[in-house]
């Protein structure tokens, strides 16, 4: 009897948490999606419910055809993919090295990589800009990519190291005895076993790069490299803010990360927490 009641109580409180969270976390997104289909006049009525004739695809049409949003969107994609790819290469290899090899000053290296996260980025960007400038990489995709790499590398390396540490060394050892060299071991042992973690690291890099504002705003100078995030920022600083268009651009910018997220969400937790869960 009391057990049933207790279970019911637990269920009720759990669902209360669920409902409150849905309102708090999901409703704002639903609202902005909703508003992206309304006309400026409809939004300015300050009413929640609009007449049917106030719904429109115009916002999306304008964003996609009048502004250069598609170019910027494609730039975002190009940059985020490159960042994921490069950061994966660097961090898989680096994390493997840190996880499996005894390296002089290993702790100092880890500490060094992390200390850069403790300094305000706004100060790093000036010297960073000067480096990119002297490398002649200003306003190029590779310049932006290299700049963004530093945002993702520390976390990626750390996460993957945690993940690789959980893969038993015995498997490595037996592979080595079978005559596999380092790269072969990395390829045949670590990649398949570490796949979930690697997927998550890639996803993480993509999301960070996709959402980055500071670095792009410093290195990009033209529509060759400007990204979707910059465009939202620009639209929202327009003299006459057309909220419908801002909402549409925001929705379009959110969509890719959400789609990607739906692919990895099951693995996400596993990967993010690999290092931490282990006793």
């Amino acid at each position: 009897m009391s057990k049933v009641r207790r279970k019911l109580g637990v269920a009720i409180s759990a669902y209360t948490v669920v409902i409150v969270s849905m309102i708090f976390f999901i409703l704002p997104m639903v609202w902005i999606i909703y508003c992206s289909f309304r006309t400026q006049a409809s939004i300015f009525t300050g009413k929640v419910i609009s007449h049917l004739n106030e719904f429109t695809l115009e916002n999306y049409e304008t964003i996609l055809s009048v502004t250069d949003y598609p170019t910027y969107f494609f730039n975002s994609f190009k940059i985020a993919l490159s960042v994921s790819l490069l950061s994966l290469i660097c961090s898989i290899v680096g994390a493997y090295g840190l996880s499996r090899f005894r390296i002089k000053g290993k702790n100092a290296i880890i500490m060094g990589i992390f200390s850069t996260q403790m300094f305000p980025q706004v100060l790093l960007i000036i010297p960073m800009y000067l480096i990119v400038f002297s490398l002649q990489m200003l306003d190029s995709v590779i310049g932006v990519v290299l700049g963004q790499l530093i945002l993702v590398l520390p976390f990626s390396i750390w996460m993957l190291k945690g993940y690789f540490d959980n893969i038993p060394v015995a498997i490595d050892d037996s592979a080595r005895i079978d005559g596999c060299n380092v790269l072969q071991r990395l390829y045949y042992v670590i990649l398949p076993l570490g796949a979930p973690g690697i997927m998550v690291a890639g996803f993480f890099s993509f999301v960070v790069s996709w959402g980055d504002y500071l670095i792009v705003s410093i290195i990009s100078q033209s529509q060759r490299t400007a990204t979707a995030t910059l465009v939202i920022q620009r639209l929202s600083s327009a003299l006459l803010i057309r909220w419908g268009q801002v909402a549409a651009a925001a929705v379009l910018t959110i969509v890719p990360t959400i789609i990607l997220f739906s692919f990895v969400q099951k693995r996400l937790v596993e990967g993010l927490t690999a290092g931490a869960v282990k006793e």
């Binding site: 976390f25 999901i26 997104m29 959402g211 995030t229 929202s236 959110i254 997220f261 996400l268």
Partner: peptide, 15 residues
């Protein structure tokens, strides 16, 4: 539930 974590900060602020 984790959707809010993956959207760009700029979008969150606009929202």
């Amino acid at each position: 539930i984790m959707a809010s974590w993956v959207i760009p900060v700029a979008a969150t602020v606009i929202l």
